[in-house]
Design a protein around this nucleic acid. Structure first.
Lengths: 213, 213
DNA sequence: GTCTGTCTCGGGCAAATTGCCCGAGATTTC
DNA sequence: GAAATCTCGGGCAATTTGCCCGAGACAGAC
């Protein structure tokens, strides 16, 4: 029986132990490497050429979605199973668009993860049921994730606004006038259909633009 | 050698596997039960009377801090190690005040967790270095968590504001005038020293007043 | 009893911001 | 090279904020 190689990427050591217990003891799978951030994930992939990568998308430093994109750029046939806490339609869509093969939440049954890994080996995409439901709900209630309706600049400004930066500081940071920041602020709220600034924060959080501490 | 009993509480199955690998294989410790939410954590504690509880504080449904309080109410000598992703001074202080013996973040070295468990058996409190630092930083920059500086009513209004409710809806909900809501809004911001509404959301999140999805 | 403190609720008003519309360069896309 | 899209900001009325004030309620202190 062929044994497939796996590398795991997660920033929490205890979670990596969990993967080992789950994946390594599975006949047919073998963990050949571990990484705890996006950069070393990429390095490990290049060095070890594993059959599958299992990774969280919330990592210290660069976003895991970036890591997915990066790895797929290097090797278009890479199989990447995203395994994360975030039950967010927007997050999932971003990951899939970036090139993830599957998207599974950590509250799923461990069996689901194993199935997703074997599925990925055969190029099958698995998305856990809770995420499917979230995506469906999202599609019904609105148009897409909403994030895609914003221009890059608007996304950038939203990011700063949601962090709690005052218009003044944003204007400095981006070297534009406060007036422009305010205009964008207004535009962003009306595009996303939000009434208050607090809602913007929640949006940024749900969408994965920002991460809760 | 006496073997101490442990129950683990976490809503992610894979993380629970990680605990098993870490704790169960440790000579002197044995996992006798698992729970995935606050209610069953309490039930398990009553049924199994373990020597230590290792639990995350962000659980589906009721907050883990409540679970800590509940368990300590039932058995004042219970040893509870909080093991969580949240690197937040306010969160840690709340957990400790609720009766947690130790507070360790998931990005800590696994050894730290084991040490905290054995420490807890002897009644020692262990707080991981990153949290200590966060608390120190907090104490220096402000006075306490800040939440205690707000009146009950202000806390209530903050809660609604941080959820993203417009002043109008808050006024309705609380049956007061919009003007009063606005005055409180201003007061809250100046008491807490915040400049923007987005910062209020982060404050509510860090302080445990609200929980991120 | 009265006094003092704190909380809640809101009025008032100048200063600042929002909501909304507009136009001009720069870039992209076809 | 025409059309579409971004980005940047001006303008201006309507609203909100920042800040100060007073009144009624209710606690505990003396």
């Amino acid at each position: 029986m062929k044994e497939y190689s796996v590398i795991i990427v997660d920033d929490h050591p205890v979670v990596r132990e969990g993967y080992r217990r789950l994946i390594d003891l599975q006949p047919g799978l073998k963990i050949v490497g571990e990484a705890e951030d996006a950069r070393s994930a990429y390095a490990q992939f290049r060095d070890l050429q594993p059959d599958v990568v299992v990774m969280d998308v919330t990592l210290p430093g660069a976003s895991g979605v970036e890591a997915v994109r990066h790895i797929r750029q290097y090797d278009d046939s890479a199989r990447i199973v995203v395994f994360t806490m975030h039950l967010s339609a927007a997050f999932a869509l971003k990951a899939i668009k970036a090139g993830a093969t599957s998207y599974i939440t950590k509250s799923s049954d461990p069996k689901t993860l194993i199935e997703a890994i074997f599925g990925a080996l055969h190029g099958r995409t698995v998305i856990s049921p809770d995420v499917i439901e979230a995506i469906a709900r999202d599609r019904i209630s609105g148009m897409g994730t909403g994030l895609s309706d914003l221009s890059p600049r608007q996304t950038e400004i939203l990011c700063l606004l949601a962090r709690g930066w005052p218009a003044e500081r944003i204007a400095e940071e981006l070297a534009i006038s406060q007036k422009t920041v305010r205009n964008n602020h207004y535009q962003i709220k009306s595009i996303l259909g939000m009434e208050t600034d607090a809602q913007l924060v929640w949006f940024a959080l749900e969408t994965g633009l920002l991460q809760a501490v």
